[in-house]
Simulated assay, not measured.
Amino acid sequence: MTNRLIRRATVFVVAAVLGGGVAVAAASPAQAAGCYYGTASVASPSGGTGATAAARLCINSYGVAWLDTNTNNYIKDQKADGYAARAYIYWSQQYTNAIAVDDTSTAGGASLHWESNAGTQYRWTEVWVCLGYARPQDNTNRCAVVVYGT
């Protein structure tokens, strides 16, 4: 009787461990995310810092990307120089329209919120801060990469 109980207990424990391991392994690719944090500043044409931004970007193994909502993702216009601060995302081989805009009339900056809502084979993703109507693809000194991830 003792051997029988030990065998049943052993089978139960092994099944629980293996079954749990399989469930975790099967779920982990969808949940596994690489997260990257960064900050950047862009100089104002009139001198000094014109804009600052910070973001925590996460990307999972399926190519779904998002800004971590548990982090203070923001863009802030630092100087009343006539150039508003704008944030952009590069994802799936293209730039988004500005996901946030801030000028000095806004107290405390603007929060960044974005998620791709879909996967892509192109997992390289970037968050950019720009001044005025400059865009990241313009190759000007009015934009800077805040954070990037693969």
Rank of each mutant, 00 (worst) to 15 (best):
M1P: 05
N3L: 04
N3V: 02
R4I: 03
I6A: 03
T10S: 08
F12V: 05
F12Y: 05
F12H: 03
V14S: 07
G20K: 11
G21A: 01
V22E: 07
V24N: 10
A25C: 12
A25T: 13
A27T: 08
A30N: 11
A32S: 14
G34T: 15
Y37T: 15
G38L: 09
A40M: 06
A40K: 07
S41C: 09
V42C: 04
A43W: 09
A43V: 04
P45T: 01
S46G: 06
G47L: 08
G47I: 06
T49S: 00
A51K: 09
T52E: 10
C58S: 10
S61R: 15
Y62M: 02
G63I: 04
V64L: 12
A65W: 06
L67D: 07
T69G: 13
T69W: 11
N72K: 12
N73R: 09
Y74W: 14
I75H: 06
K76C: 08
D77V: 00
Q78E: 15
Q78D: 14
K79I: 00
G82S: 11
G82K: 13
A84V: 12
A84Y: 15
A85F: 08
A87E: 00
Y88F: 15
Y88L: 13
I89L: 13
Y90G: 09
Y90E: 10
S92L: 03
Q93H: 05
Q94L: 05
Y95K: 06
T96K: 00
N97T: 00
I99D: 00
I99S: 00
V101F: 00
D103I: 01
T104C: 01
T104N: 03
S105L: 15
S105I: 11
T106F: 07
G108F: 15
G109A: 11
A110P: 12
A110K: 01
S111Q: 15
E115D: 15
E115K: 06
A118L: 05
G119K: 11
Y122N: 13
R123D: 06
R123G: 04
T125P: 14
W128P: 00
V129G: 13
L131Y: 08
Y133R: 02
P136N: 03
A144V: 02
A144L: 02
V145L: 12
V146N: 05
V147P: 09
G149M: 12
T150S: 07
